[in-house]
Amino acid sequence: MELFIDITLLTFLCITALAITVIRKLFCAVMLAGIFSLLSACLFVSMDAVDVAFTEAAVGTGIATVLMLAALNLSHSREKCPPYQPLLALLVVCTTGAVLVYGTMDLPAFGDATAPIHHHVAPRYIEQSQQEIGPPNFVTSILASYRGYDTLAETVVIFTAGLSVVALLGIRDRRGGQSITTDRSAMKGYLVLRVVTKLLLPFIFLFALYVQFHGDYGPGGGFQAGVIFASGVIIHSLTLGRDRTLKAFPQRFLTILATAGVLLYGGTGLAAMVRGGNFLDYSVLGATALAGQHLGIFLVELGVGVTVFASMTLMYYAFSYRKEA
């Protein structure tokens, strides 16, 4: 059964990928890219990677598609025919693919439990993380504690992306003098949409908080929560008008939030150093090692969530405000 699902999904993925290469309408290509990542999220679920699937669905299908559409809105939506026959490209690709296939010949078979990958480092995570760190979700333990430093870097990466997009596109606050009621970006004619959005928004934010604080026990965590929170703000901005959103979440506030998230993460690490541990060693933060780990993971996940939310929203602002500025 699992094999059947796998094969179906992989076939769909191949069809989508080929369609992307052929299609000329960029709008369709962007939508297909969204479908591609949704399909791969399904595949991740069938391969037990629920956290990854969650992230891929939220990021690849959600935010990346939104950003691409926003960028399309700022430019052309049709691709020109390439003027040359890309034979060289085909050759490069075939060679690379052949080398890779050659390399996978020696890999252990898919799903093989005796592969070395499952026997060296991973067993400790599975067998001892609950005693050493606590959360039943091993992914959270590794992400926030064993490899917490990677996650700090990842938080800075998304922070950097936010900074870069703002530096490149700039956000101009046009609220000076203009009243909210004249905002043309609000979807005035779509009453149903506006009502439903207002109805759903509290639940979206609530769900984001659930994902944020339930990450220890199930799939989820700061990153996914931040993305969901940001998508709530994006819906708000789409239907109720940018100016209103900008009033609720001003740019300066979001910049401070993004910064605060990174500093919260780094600060947790520094606090551990002050209390005599290594950087990001949460064990020294609490009365017992487990309590310390719990507190540390809570804080760093919060930092991740806040930074991701603020950076994603800033990026969206930068794209959506560009057109009229």
């Binding site: 490899r147 870097a153 870069s164």
Partner: peptide, 29 residues
């Protein structure tokens, strides 16, 4: 600096992307 100082292959990749991402934006300025 993170690339150079680390002893972990994947951490190196993350820091590589960190430095690259910021340099793309810096060049574009």
């Amino acid at each position: 600096l993170g690339i150079v100082v680390t002893g972990d292959a994947f951490n190196m990749y993350v820091f590589l992307e960190l430095s690259s991402l910021s340099s793309y934006a810096l060049i574009a300025l």
